[in-house]
């Protein structure tokens, strides 16, 4: 496992796109958070909105880049045929996937910390005077890590990076829109509880927690289930199928 980890880390570190994508996560998250905060333009502390959550809006944009980064970790190997070399060197396929998962989680966590902290800082400067809840910050970092794992699992299962990123982004963005459309309150609530993004982002809610369809940590739990399901499917297909 140690050598597998080392190998995966080397691959990711030396792959040309990684640094750019990591920077893109930070820039897109902080940038869109700042844009939203600036466009909100309400009186300091008095616009009846969850300002912590508002200053973390960028996470919803940044997660797309995180998903792409994660998809590329295995997707690129399928594109280039590198996966055959990897599996020749490390025939235990679950170990390969586990090592990739650890590396992805680590890289995303390291990227997410400055992105989330940067968003909160920018949000605090533009809309000063609101209390910043640590749970929202820690939760957002964990959220991005789980999105990374979801992306990795999906890409392992789908084997085509473009299709995989389409599936992951579809999973993330379709649920909230359908929930917006479905007008039966019970159904809407269930959709928001089941969707990986709407459930996972409940962790950002700070104000009226009762108004959120699912508890903050339970929501993150739902996302964890999605990520685990994707990794398991990916792992199973990787173990069974010809690469």
């Amino acid at each position: 496992m140690r050598s597998a980890l080392h190998a995966e880390w080397t691959k990711l570190r030396t792959s040309p796109g990684t640094l750019g994508l990591a920077l893109a996560v930070i820039v897109s998250t902080v940038g869109s958070s700042a844009a939203v905060a600036a466009a909100t333009g309400c009186a300091p502390g008095g616009c009846g909105q969850d300002l912590t959550r508002l200053s973390l809006t960028g996470v919803q944009v940044g997660q797309a880049v995180v998903a792409v980064l994660a998809v590329l970790v295995i997707g690129d190997e399928y594109s280039t045929g590198m996966v055959r070399v990897t599996l020749t060197a490390l025939p235990r396929r679950t170990t390969v996937l586990a090592a990739k998962a650890v590396v992805v989680a680590g890289v995303v966590a390291v990227t997410a910390v400055p992105a989330v902290l940067g968003s909160l800082t920018v949000g605090w400067f533009i809309l000063p005077g609101h209390e910043v809840v640590p749970r929202a910050a820690v939760g957002s970092v964990l959220y991005l890590v789980l999105i990374g794992l979801l992306g990795l699992g999906t890409a392992t299962a789908a084997r085509n990076p473009a299709a995989a990123s389409g599936i992951v982004l579809g999973l993330l963005y379709v649920f909230p829109i359908i929930a917006q459309v479905v007008t039966d309150p019970g159904w809407r609530r269930h959709l928001q509880q089941a969707g990986p993004m709407s459930a996972g982002l409940a962790v950002q809610a700070t104000g009226d927690v009762d108004a959120v369809p699912i508890g903050p940590w339970q929501g993150l739990g739902v996302l964890t289930l999605w990520a685990l399901a994707a990794l398991l499917t990916g792992g199973l297909l990787l173990a069974r199928h010809d690469a």
């Binding site: 809006t57 944009v61 797309a64 792409v68 998809v71 990076p161 473009a162 990123s165």
Partner: peptide, 23 residues
């Protein structure tokens, strides 16, 4: 993958943000 993500971010994401979260 880069193209798909960019296209989704440019075409789909603004609508989603405007409909759900943005003030």
């Amino acid at each position: 993958v880069t193209a798909v993500a960019t296209a989704v971010a440019v075409i789909v994401l603004p609508y989603l943000l405007a409909m759900t979260v943005l003030p």
